[in-house]
Design a protein around this nucleic acid. Structure first.
Lengths: 215, 215
DNA sequence: GACGATATCCCCGGTTTCGGGGGGCCACCC
DNA sequence: GGGTGGCCCCCCGAAACCGGGGATATCGTC
């Protein structure tokens, strides 16, 4: 009698990483990688097509980020088991991914055996959050969230723009920009323009775009 | 008659990535991974012990960064063939790694066949720099370099500190800090505190420390 | 309909930064 | 011994930012 294998979808934008994960999983007799994807949109497509029992998802993806992909997949199938497997990039990622419905959160330097174990666990409906991840989640939950507008302002701030430029781009007055910035000083408990940018980057609230320089 | 295999040292802090690389290389009949390392210091140790024909090196490593490890290895053996295999993190990395003596620079999403080919090339003394990497090198070479002092100031600036704090920490006057900052405005062609931080991060000149939050 | 959260705009006094300018010291190289 | 470059210090007016305060409107929720 043949037990059906656990079908895994592997999403990561780096070929070599996918390669490593696949070689690892296919070593196990009771699981197999049925599809891979290198960006968020493809991940959703592949999910719809293959309906894998478990999805392994990186968060930093081109075209559609991991969190958005998780949301799309869970919208498609609300009980989809998704494991986030990513580098640590700040607390915010963890919070967002869990909000979006991730069933587990692992860092990329996890030992192979743990990954295998987690796949089995989430496949049967379980969740796995290591203690350090849980600690971040609890911490984060106790902190005030930024409003959408504040987030927009923060984004532009982190892009190096100054009050006037932000005001122009958002079509609001400079005073309003200031008001949002001041509100964030309180929420993030920092003082100063550069400090807020540093803190936001450290927490992973915003990112800088590191693309190969436009030539 | 047996041709000796190309001996490879694989350095990366993520187990899964090493795993992928190894499974790839060991598939080739004429090469084999003889050692791995997950941080810079271990990389140097392993190099001394095994004297591999080719070293695959990530740049973001704990304990000793990749560039420093490259320097240490080349100091040990000036003709050591080292391939940098990393995610793109800003132009500065490329420049520094090449300065340190890297024989090739590949991005982590390179196709496996390319990696294999590059290993063979550098093993016979060759160099491989893809056109986009070359372009960055040329561009960077034409730009003014920051002085050590400026770099220090930039680091503190990116940590969110303001003029006074930087002055205190560096034991210089606030005016001098300003002078350095102004000099960098010119060199980096930006205006404003937040802009200089954004630009420095984008280029990879400085980094923010993203460690799991100290609890 | 009252309430809370969000978003907008405003005022104001004090501090910091910006962007010019200036000069002096030292070490290294030609 | 005269450059050159890094580093340090200073001045000043204009602009930006800081950190309080308050006012109004909207939009949900309860």
């Amino acid at each position: 009698m043949v037990t059906p294998k656990i079908q895994v979808l592997c999403v990561d934008d780096h070929r070599l990483v996918r390669r490593g994960i696949i070689s690892l999983i296919d070593l196990e007799p009771d699981m197999t990688v049925v599809a891979e994807a290198s960006d968020g949109e493809e991940a959703v497509r592949q999910f719809k097509q293959h309906r894998p029992g478990v999805t392994l998802m990186d968060l930093e993806l081109p075209r559609m980020n991991g969190v958005a992909a998780i949301r799309a997949i869970r919208h498609e199938q609300p009980d989809a088991a998704i494991i986030v497997l990513t580098m640590y990039q700040g607390d915010e990622d963890i919070y967002r991914a869990v909000q979006a419905g991730a069933a587990a959160y692992l860092l990329k330097d996890a030992v192979p055996e743990v990954l295998i174990g987690v796949i089995r666990t989430v496949h049967t409906g379980g969740q796995v959050f290591p203690p350090e991840i849980l600690a971040v989640m609890k911490q984060r939950a106790s902190e005030p969230a930024l409003t959408p507008r504040e987030h927009q302002v923060l984004e532009l701030l982190a892009a190096g723009k100054r009050t006037k430029e932000i005001a122009a781009q958002l079509r609001i007055s400079g005073e309003t920009v200031d008001a949002h910035v001041k509100s964030m000083y309180f929420k993030l408990k920092v003082h100063g323009r550069t400090a807020i940018v540093a803190e936001a980057l450290r927490r992973g609230i915003v990112r800088i775009d590191t693309n190969l320089r436009r030539l």
